[in-house]
Amino acid sequence: MDPEAVELAYSDMKCLEPEEYLKSPVINFYLEYLKKSRPRRDLYMFNTYFYSKLENALSTLGNRDSQFSKLRRWCRNVDIFTKSYLILPINETMHWSLIIVCMPTKGADSGPMMLHLDSLGLHNSQNIFDIVASYLGEEWRNLRKDSSYDIPFSRTIWKRLSRNIKGEKIEVPRQQNEYDCGIFMLYYIDKFIQQAPERLTKESLGMFGRKWFNHEEASQLREGIRTRLFDLFQSAKEDDGPSEPEWQSF
């Protein structure tokens, strides 16, 4: 089985009905769809469960190295610092927002930049920045143990990486209802993948803004995902016989 396959129940599609909140199985399905349909080797996308695991690792008493060793299994064989971008879905208090970590180039004089995109402005950006920065710091400390590690950017920045991680709250188009936060988060990701340069700097932040796209474009994504999933379940039903499939991996 494909290790990136997402297992979905037919009942998971209920969250795609009008005025419903998107749930993790459907969001993860669409993230995998974006990976395959808009491939970018310079980008790494975490699934929706990673952030909660990260919060748990930071809040658990005891050996932090042990906690983060378990966390590394989620992105095994991926050096996050060699990517241009890290995409990290955030779910707190029944609301979805998005973190995009932008890594610097080899010659840059600034460190990683965390962007927070929130379609309602409900999440505490600074709290999320602190959590994500802690993750980057732990990964940095782990890699520093390896004297042969090929540092992916300026040694000056790398030497004091924890002090060089910055956060930016980004103005973005807002949802016009209470329930489209997951839809908007996915649309932010899709638009970003299509438009982001090889490396994003602070001077490039003008690509965002309240007029980045029309909010109606994002809301229409709900029906697009629903149609795509319905077609996949119908195909699975035809392949497997007359009984309606309860679960499928895509």
Rank of each mutant, 00 (worst) to 15 (best):
Q195K: 15
E138G: 06
A133E: 13
P245D: 11
V132D: 02
I225F: 02
I87T: 00
P197K: 01
F46W: 02
P242K: 04
G107L: 14
P173H: 03
M13D: 05
C102R: 00
S243G: 02
K83Q: 09
Y30A: 00
K36R: 15
F230E: 13
Y44C: 03
Y135R: 03
R144E: 11
G137C: 13
D130G: 05
H116V: 11
L221K: 09
Q220G: 10
R76K: 13
D2A: 08
I90S: 01
E19P: 06
L22P: 15
A196F: 02
Q195D: 09
K53C: 06
R174Y: 05
N177A: 05
C181L: 06
M185H: 00
V6H: 00
N56C: 07
F208C: 11
F29C: 08
I157R: 01
L186Q: 10
M185N: 00
D190C: 09
G137T: 14
P245A: 04
R228V: 04
G224L: 14
N91D: 04
L136M: 07
S134Q: 14
K191V: 06
C15L: 02
D180F: 15
R141A: 09
E55T: 07
D109S: 15
K35S: 12
F81N: 03
S125P: 08
K83W: 03
D180T: 12
V6D: 09
Y10P: 08
M113G: 03
M45W: 07
K83L: 01
T156G: 05
W158H: 11
V78T: 14
I80Q: 03
S59T: 11
E139T: 05
I193H: 01
M13R: 15
T82Y: 01
A133T: 11
L16C: 07
L8S: 03
F213Y: 14
L117S: 11
F129M: 07
V26G: 12
R163V: 03
P245V: 06
P39F: 02
T93Y: 10
R210G: 02
M1P: 15
V6G: 10
S162P: 15
R141Y: 09
E238R: 08
D180Y: 14
